[in-house]
Design a protein around this nucleic acid. Structure first.
Length: 423
RNA sequence: GGUGGGGUACUCAAGCGGCCAACGAGGGCAGACUGUAAAUCUGCUUGCUUUUGCAUACGGAGGUUCGAAUCCUUCCCCCACCA
């Protein structure tokens, strides 16, 4: 017999709250569940991955899952969890982002499942053409001001000093309506989301009850933070994207490999499908030999495989092996090219490089964003050419630095590599 | 529509005529120490040059002044209260 999905989520630290204690009982028979994804970027990030995992767990437990891309609501912006009004995205951007997210999601959910295939929907399909007057009459009528104003997300914004626009205030109606729509057309009775979605979810449940007299449920997932309380994977513009063109396999792998000790076991539970017993064993080994970093390696491995496939993983591992191992002396350009396949690279002409000052080369390669930036890096001793520390700003690149006449390897710090192909 | 308070670099937040490329904190980057961890310590954090400058920059546009983030005008935006 299958494990109840609620128990499973609890065990993995993926459960925060539910709207009714009856939910586990309801989930004993197959249900339809949905989660929404906001197209505020053209690629999902590691933070969204938690929600994807939850849907996967539901699917594994025999439930039907729907991933909703907020093509329409993305035009408005969800105020939940934000303390300032969000800049509106133009329609074109939202459409492009919606497509990107659609692509991302399709990699993680099973759309060909024999009994319960996943489904992807876009709320633009029903909200896009909904007239304002009609919407107010049909839907708005069922929302009470008191309840809307009482929402935590609204209250916090009103209490703060940035206030809130009517547009964002209306957001909760739209998401509530999504739930209603899915309840009607897909028999979807459960919505899952991050804990910041509680208000939006309950708004939907209430709307369904008022309009259809039917029961619906909500389940929330804790927001995943690192042990510093920072929102996961978003440490200042360093978001880990689930898209190789935005975050290379190598960087992705490295990100998880470098997780803090205090986080790694929890991350394994939350982000991967490694059985809990195995995680327990990893925790033990990590406890006695932290320097071996077995848990870190497993985490990075599982994540990279899930997101970038077996090929992506082996590339990332190969690169890691070389880059953190011995020097690169004696390696041929061809070998290096293979190893560095997914390390960010650029192409420069021979004249751009040969005889040029190292500052200019660092700048042209895109490793540094300005000459001043490059200069600082070198003065701090943080720039490496072919894994040898650059001694000073006067150093220049000579032909003998160019490996096999076609390759340079630049590095900033311990781990930010940049490959320069010479044409 | 009225009154009052605001808009400063990635974020928060000082500055309120020259000493301001702008205190401080956080974040980020780099160095040392380590286990590609944490904690700690150090340096950097607009661009170009070099260490002396130059150009941009304190919501937008004008103005006053030898000189403005700082004063004035006007516009835009945000907040609170009143209508």
């Amino acid at each position: 017999m299958k494990m109840n999905v609620v128990t499973l989520l609890k065990d993995r630290g993926l459960f925060e709250d539910m709207t009714s204690p009856d939910l586990p009982k309801v989930l004993e028979s197959p249900c339809t569940v949905y989660a929404g994804f906001d197209p505020s970027s053209d690629s999902l990030q590691a933070g969204n991955y938690v929600t994807i995992m939850v849907l996967r767990h539901f699917q594994r437990c025999g439930h039907k899952v729907i991933a909703l891309v907020g093509g329409a609501t993305g035009m408005i912006g969800d105020p939940s969890g934000k303390d300032a009004e969000r800049a509106l995205l133009d329609e074109e951007t939202v459409i492009r982002n919606t497509e990107g997210i659609r692509e991302n999601l399709s990699r993680f959910l099973d759309f060909d499942h024999p009994t319960a295939p996943a489904k992807l929907v876009n709320n633009m399909d029903w909200l896009g053409a909904y007239g304002f007057i009609t919407f107010l009459r049909d839907v708005g009528k069922h929302f009470r001001m008191g309840a809307m104003l009482g929402r935590e997300s609204v209250q916090r914004r009103l209490a703060g000093d940035s206030g809130m626009s009517y547009t964002e205030f209306s957001y909760q109606m739209l998401q509530a309506y999504d739930f209603l729509e899915l309840r009607n057309r897909e028999e979807c009775i459960i919505q899952v989301g991050g804990s910041d979605q509680w208000g939006n979810i309950t708004a939907g449940i209430e709307l369904i009850r008022r309009l259809n007299g039917k029961q619906a449920y909500g389940l929330t997932v804790p927001l995943i933070c690192d042990n510093q309380g920072q929102k996961f994977g978003k440490s200042e513009g360093n978001a880990m994207f689930l898209d190789a063109s935005k975050t290379s396999q190598y960087d992705f792998y490295q990100f998880f490999l470098r997780s803090e000790d205090a986080d790694v076991i929890r991350f394994l539970k939350v982000f991967t499908e490694v059985p809990l017993d195995d995680i327990e064993a990893l925790a033990e080994e990590h406890g006695s030999h932290p320097e071996r970093r077995v848990a870190h390696k497993r985490l990075a491995e599982e994540m990279t495989r899930a997101v970038h496939g077996e090929a992506g993983l082996s590339m990332a591992q190969a690169a890691t092996g070389v880059l953190f191992g011995e020097s690169m002396q004696g390696l041929k350009a061809e070998q290096l090219l293979g190893i560095f396949a997914d390390v960010p690279s650029c192409e420069l002409t021979h004249d751009d490089v040969s005889g040029q000052n190292i500052l200019d080369v660092a700048l042209r390669s895109g490793l540094c964003k300005s000459k001043g930036d490059a200069r600082r890096l070198i003065q701090n001793g943080g720039l490496y050419l072919n894994n040898d520390r650059v001694s000073g700003v006067e150093q220049s690149v000579s032909d003998s630095d160019i490996i096999d006449g076609c390759l340079l390897v630049l590095k900033s710090g311990k781990r930010n590599y940049r490959l320069v192909r010479i044409s």
